[in-house]
Design a protein around this nucleic acid. Structure first.
Lengths: 198, 198
DNA sequence: AGCGAACTGGGACATGTGACCCAGTTCGAA
DNA sequence: TTCGAACTGGGTCACATGTCCCAGTTCGCT
């Protein structure tokens, strides 16, 4: 009924799609399901997007852009590097626990992108973004703990991303908080060895 | 043409399904695709299985049972615990590189199982199996390096699984061998701190 | 107010898919 | 050798899904 210009509709559809993917998985993110979630008619979908694929691609791009420093955001703690790192990872874990479906959706989108050569770059971009954010956090962490990375920060960041990823996948499966915290501790420990006091 | 008893057919279909999932992803593992891969007719499928869901469930169970000590199998190296651990993880990494599609399939099956409450236990079982295998490997590793775990082995194992999982996901995305080896190194380092010389 | 373009709703179509059915064929046991 | 059950192939059904079309409606501009 209400007229909405196409660009806004694209945004609304992407939001709706993310909700559907989070709630029901990407396999259930059909055009009809997305449109229902957005409260629109099917025609509006193809007025705003050429195809479902186009929407999914934009969805992935959007979540990449939107990914803020969830991984170790503003590190609040002052202290040893290990402590700062662990606090950061634990904070990410809290974020994961607060919205597991979202992280699960991210994982699914990655898997999805990995499945076609044309979309593979999207998955790479997603992880490049993760690494970028991790790098920033690690720089801050070193700062706060008066340390210097003895290994290129990018490499440390890649490792951090791998660790948090593993933590995410395993926790999504077993929901074992204590185990996840143990992983966080071990990961922080490993990372801290890549720096020295300044 | 050739008559094949139902139980054998089930096995053949599961094998075929695994190949299809590895090659094209679980979304493409339709009854028709599986049947074509197995060189059977569609009717044979529903003669052997009640439904596609039943096959997928059995597929997951099968891969769980079949999962051998890919994660740090017979640890060959003698040496420091770190070295033994790293060698084991690197060996897993070689396995991953040798057949990336298989590990990707495992990941997809997990994600798939995670999406429905009835199947969630399958995902848990899969990871429980991983942890079990990791535990065995870790016991051997401690043995070989004359060390003792100072933390319950199960917890160490869970952490190892998380680490290798993270390594897997990130490597599947960026195919960065050097980065993966760095993760392996860091992971081995972290794990080795959970033991002491005997 | 009037006009053209932007937008909307409902329906339609082709295709893919899971499930099923049934008439035939083949095998093993009696 | 015969007979019944196990098995097979091909066709079919219902439904979901991506895409499209078109007649109508609404808006911004003149």
């Amino acid at each position: 009924m209400t007229r909405i210009p196409a660009p806004e509709r694209r945004v609304a559809l992407i939001e709706a799609a993310l909700r559907v993917v989070s709630r029901n998985g990407i396999a259930q993110a059909t055009t009809r399901a997305i449109v229902a979630e957005a409260g629109m008619s099917l025609a509006s979908f193809h007025y705003a997007f050429d195809s479902r694929d186009e929407l999914i691609d934009e969805l992935i791009s959007t979540v990449i852009d939107r990914t803020r420093g969830a991984v170790m955001p503003e590190v609040l703690v002052e202290g040893t590097l290990v402590d700062v790192l662990e606090a950061g990872i634990v904070r990410y874990f809290e974020h994961l626990k607060a919205d597991p479906e979202h992280e699960q959706a991210m994982l699914e989108l990655t898997q999805y992108a990995l499945r076609s050569p044309e979309r593979h770059p999207l998955a790479r971009a997603q992880y490049a973004r993760y690494v970028e954010l991790a790098e920033q956090s690690l720089a801050i962490a070193a700062e706060r703990s008066h340390s210097t990375w003895t290994v290129p920060v990018t490499r440390v960041a890649r490792t951090l991303v791998a660790f948090t990823d593993g933590l995410t996948v395993t926790w999504l499966v077993d929901r074992d908080d204590a185990a996840a915290l143990a992983v966080a501790h071990a990961a922080a420990d490993a990372l801290s060895r890549m720096a020295e006091p300044r």
